[in-house]
Design a protein around this nucleic acid. Structure first.
Lengths: 198, 198
DNA sequence: TGAATGACAGATATTGAAATCTGTCAGCAC
DNA sequence: GTGCTGACAGATTTCAATATCTGTCATTCA
């Protein structure tokens, strides 16, 4: 009787994503998820204490997937300025591609993320740590002049908000975007490389 | 019979703001505005072609009021770096004070602004021009090393988005905010002052 | 004559009853 | 026992009728 696949959190999350894709955030119900898995909705509650926690788990998965490629770049070795440039452009690109490929699903994940703000906070923290790691390398290499890598990383992260924070996604189609990003990243890199005065 | 005050666009805008303050954006109707002025709602349509245009005019007034103190700073003379720092901190402060003093009204104006996106675009353009003006002065003074003041101004404006764009207003109460702003502005000023390589 | 009115049509918002959903739990099946 | 079911109470959402609002315009008034 092991032909019947066991109901795991993983399978539920998979089904939830599918249901969200199909019905959208507003219409997706726990009953729908259960129906997709061909179980009663009570069973879903055996694995997730509430609909909110199920949604949070979906959001977390999504954030983790977005994090992976950036983590890789952060761990590379080589000249820090080029790496930081690459990292920032990749982050911007990931978000941009997500919103272009499937704007509806992007909006869904966005609302989901707003509910799971603690997971988002942790995600941002990880990203800032990656930037701090690159900057720290840059200091060791003598390329960057920075007192506190973490503080500088946060400043760089803040400074690029406009190009990676979903709240601004409707401005990402601006044809002048590429040039503006070049100017911004150039300014930031110069700021990191410049000798400190204050 | 001149005791009866004439109905002017200005008076209508005044009354509209009052109605918005009282009833909130969702509940404020043209009929309410007319009632506040003790005229028929048809009369309001003699001065504004639609409810949307009335709202746009209110938004525009609001943006103009926010612009005035910044314009002053931009027109000051003196060392550009300090002026730029002052200008940016003032902009951040204006927004912060607005949201603290009356969060509800801030939210109202925010929604209003989203509808009047053309007016917002023009407002931002004015602000960037002010920054460009300061940067341009800095270049003349030999303090800044910048090829294109307007491009650099846009980069600075973009970089500070997190602290002046209303979409992030719920993060402005962060106790670490002051330090993060210091780090960000320091980074940007160093970037402007640093000799260009690229 | 030019500003204001108020009645009107169509669009939009409100409301309350009915339907659906969330979360719980006693009981069933393996 | 462990994992699932399905019926249930209370919360939430839907839907359609009802009310209100937006925008127009023929008419009134000074």
């Amino acid at each position: 009787m092991n032909e019947v696949v066991v109901l795991t959190p993983e399978r539920i999350l998979e089904a939830t994503e599918e249901v969200l894709r199909r019905y959208g955030l507003a219409k997706a119900t726990v009953v729908d998820v259960a129906r997709a898995l061909d179980v009663s909705h009570g069973s879903v509650y055996r694995h997730f204490p509430s609909k909110a926690s199920l949604r949070q788990a979906v959001a977390k998965r999504w954030l983790d997937r977005a994090n992976a490629p950036l983590q890789k770049i952060a761990e590379t070795t080589g000249p820090a300025p080029a790496r930081l440039d690459k990292w920032l452009r990749t982050m911007i690109d990931i978000k941009y591609k997500k919103v272009c490929e499937d704007p509806e699903m992007f909006a869904t994940y966005l609302s989901l993320a707003q509910e799971a703000c603690e997971a988002v906070r942790a995600h941002k923290e990880r990203l800032v740590d990656q930037v701090a790691h690159i900057i720290s390398d840059g200091v060791k290499q003598g390329a960057f002049q920075v007192t506190d890598a973490k503080v500088a990383a946060r400043a760089v992260f803040d400074a690029t908000t406009r190009y990676h924070h979903p709240a601004h996604s409707d401005e990402w189609k601006d044809p002048a975007k590429a040039g503006r990003i070049d100017a911004l990243l150039g300014l930031l890199l110069r700021g990191l490389e410049a000798p400190r005065k204050r």
